[in-house]
Design a protein around this nucleic acid. Structure first.
Length: 155
DNA sequence: GCCAACGTTGGC
DNA sequence: GCCAACGTTGGC
């Protein structure tokens, strides 16, 4: 069974264009337990992902990606030179996990205000006030609606 | 740049 | 285990 997710990235840190250029990437730097648990326990190979650009004007969904490797230790937590270094992480207890994703399809930019304006997306976690989770669930229905808004009819 | 919302830390 | 203080996220 395929599940659907949304992953946030600040475009000046790691953008959709960079993902396309790289072909795939490891989703390092998640330091929130809820987001980690989703990646560790729920994300499976082939799951679809809305790639969301946060902290930019306007915030928007930029593309569709896919999980191409399931959870494994986020090695940046054990790299003292990484800004994501966590002294509590060790080989025995890596503490933080990541998945790999790869691009599937570019979307016409879907701005947050347009998502908010679409009543069919009522209840989407992303649109809840104060929602900060960087990895979050999306229902299949909402996922398909967003794809349609971005010019992709069926994925 | 502001600040509301939320998560984490650590003293007690 | 509570909760105040603090740090971060991210829309605006």
């Amino acid at each position: 069974m395929v599940n659907y997710w949304l992953m946030k990235s600040e475009p000046h840190v790691y953008s959709w264009a960079q993902l396309v250029k790289d072909g795939s990437t490891h989703w390092d730097g998640v330091r929130n337990y809820q987001a980690r648990n989703i990646m560790r326990d729920e994300m499976a190979l082939g799951d679809k992902v809305l790639f969301y650009h946060s902290n930019c004007k306007p915030p928007h969904v930029a593309g569709i990606a896919r999980v191409c490797r399931e959870a494994y230790p986020d090695f940046t937590a054990q790299d003292i030179y990484s800004k994501y270094f966590d002294p509590r992480a060790s080989p025995d207890n890596p503490r933080w996990m990541m998945v790999d994703i790869e691009p599937v399809s570019e979307l016409e930019t879907i701005r947050l205000p347009d998502l908010r304006a679409n009543g069919a997306l009522d209840g989407m976690p992303l649109l809840r006030k104060g929602q900060r989770l960087s990895v979050q669930s999306v229902s299949e229905e909402h996922f398909q609606i967003v794809c349609a808004m971005g010019g992709i009819s069926k994925i």
